[in-house]
Amino acid sequence: MVVMSIAGVDPSAGAGIYADLKTFQAHGVYGCGVVTALTAQNPYKVFSLSPVDKNYVSEQIDAVLDAYNIKYVKTGMLYSSEIIKLVSKKITEYDLKAVVDPVMVATSGGDLTKSDLANALNKYLLPKSILTTPNIAEAEKLTNLNIKSKEDAIKSTEKLPCNSLITGGHLDGINTMNINGEITIKKQELLESNNLHGTGCNLSSAIVANLEKGNSLINSCLKSFDYVYEAIKNGNYGTLIAKL
C-alpha cells in the first residue's frame, strides 16, 4: 500500500510533507513525498518561502511513479497556478485519485501562495479531484461566499467543483461534507489546545491513507476526523498509531 503527498516542507514537521508522512505511517501505509516549496516556519510564524521549479516538481512525480503503482495522492501547498496546472496534468496522465487540501494560509496566519491560487484550483485541479478539504477561510476564497453558519457551509459545498469537506474548526466544530450530492454533518467538540498546527494536512493525508486501505470516501472522512481529534487531544501526531 503506497500513497503520495505533493506539498511543501515545514521544518517544524507539524504540517506539510513531514506531517503527511507521519500520518501515512500511523495508518500503516507507505508514503512518498513530492516537494513543491521549502518554508522556514514553525507553529507560530512563517519566516520565508522558496518555491521549487515546476519542472523539478514534474521530475519528482515522474520518478516516484516510475517505481510505485500509486492510486491515491493528496496535495497540500502548491504555491502557484503553474504548479497547479502541472499537478492537474499529472493526475490525468497517471490516472490518480486526488484529495486536495487547498492550502493558502498557514495556521499561524502566514500567506503561503500567490494571489491567483483560488481561481487556478477551481479551474484546473478541483474538477479532476475526488475531494477537497478546505477550512472556512479557504472555502470562502474558493467560493467567494461568506460562511457564518451551517447553512452557509452547505451552500458553499454546492458551489465547489468536486466532492467537498469544509472543516469546522472555525464554525463551532461543524464539519460539512458534500459527497456525491449528499450532505453529511459531523459536529465535533472543540478542544482548547496549542496543538492545532497542521491539522488540515493531517486530516487530508489520513483520508488518503484510509482510502488506500479500502474504505469508502465518506467512511475515510469520518475515520480521519476521529484520528485528528485524538491527535489534538493527545498532543502528538507522530506517536499516535491509528487503530482503524
Score class of each variant (00 low, 15 high):
Asn144Tyr: 11
Tyr18Leu: 12
Asp20Phe: 05
Ile174Val: 15
Pro134Gln: 07
Glu182Asp: 11
Lys148Phe: 10
Val46Pro: 13
Ser224Asn: 00
Glu189Gly: 13
Phe47Cys: 09
Leu211Pro: 00
Asp10Thr: 07
Leu190Lys: 15
Ala137Ser: 10
Tyr227Ala: 01
Thr199Val: 08
Leu142Thr: 10
Ser12Gln: 12
Ser5Arg: 03
Ser5Cys: 01
Thr239Gly: 08
Ala120Leu: 02
Thr239Tyr: 08
Lys54Glu: 08
Ile183Met: 07
Leu196Gly: 11
Lys90Glu: 15
Thr167Met: 15
Ser48Ile: 06
Glu192Arg: 04
Gly235Pro: 00
Thr184Glu: 12
Asn178Asp: 07
Met77Ala: 00
Ile241Gln: 05
Cys162Lys: 14
Gly168Arg: 06
Pro161Gly: 15
His170Arg: 09
Asn119His: 15
Ile70Gly: 09
Leu165His: 11
Asn219Pro: 03
Lys85Met: 11
Thr132Pro: 10
Asn178Tyr: 05
Gly16Lys: 13
Asp152Ala: 08
Lys123Cys: 13
Thr39Trp: 10
Ala26Thr: 01
His197Leu: 04
Val64Arg: 07
Ser216Asp: 03
Gly198Met: 01
Ile218Lys: 11
Gly168Ala: 11
Asn175Phe: 06
Ala40Glu: 06
Val46Trp: 06
Ala118Asn: 13
Phe225Asn: 02
His197Lys: 13
Asp95Cys: 11
Ile136Ala: 05
Lys243Ile: 06
Ala37Arg: 10
Ala7His: 11
Ala118Thr: 14
Val52Ile: 03
Leu49Gln: 14
Ala206Asn: 01
Asp10Ala: 11
Lys74Met: 03
Ser115Gly: 07
Asn236Thr: 01
Ile241Asp: 00
Ser80Trp: 03
Pro161Cys: 12
Asp101Ser: 08
Ser129Lys: 04
Glu138Ser: 00
Lys54Met: 02
Asp62Ser: 14
Ile232Val: 02
Tyr124Asp: 05
Ala15His: 06
Ile174Ser: 15
Ile84Ser: 09
Ile83Ala: 04
Ile91Phe: 15
Thr75Ser: 09
Asp95Asn: 14
Val2Gln: 09
Ala19Lys: 00
Leu96Phe: 14
Ser81Met: 04
Val87Pro: 13
Val34Ala: 09
Val52Asn: 03
Leu171His: 02
Lys186Arg: 12
Glu182Phe: 09
Gln25Pro: 05
His27Lys: 02
Tyr44Asn: 14
Gly16Cys: 07
Val105His: 06
Ser50Tyr: 06
Gly198Pro: 05
Glu93Pro: 11
Thr199Gly: 04
Ile207Val: 12
Val9Tyr: 11
Ser80Thr: 05
Ala67Asp: 12
Asn69Thr: 09
Asp101Ile: 07
Ala26Val: 01
Gly76Arg: 04
Leu112Gln: 04
Ala206Ile: 00
Ser58Ile: 03
Lys141Gln: 09
Ser193Trp: 04
Cys201Met: 01
Lys155Trp: 03
Ser224Gly: 03
Asn194Ser: 14
Lys90Phe: 10
Val228Phe: 01
Leu171Trp: 01
Met4Phe: 12
Gly28Tyr: 10
Thr23Ile: 13
Val52Arg: 00
Met1Leu: 09
Lys128Tyr: 14
Ala13Gly: 13
Ala209Val: 08
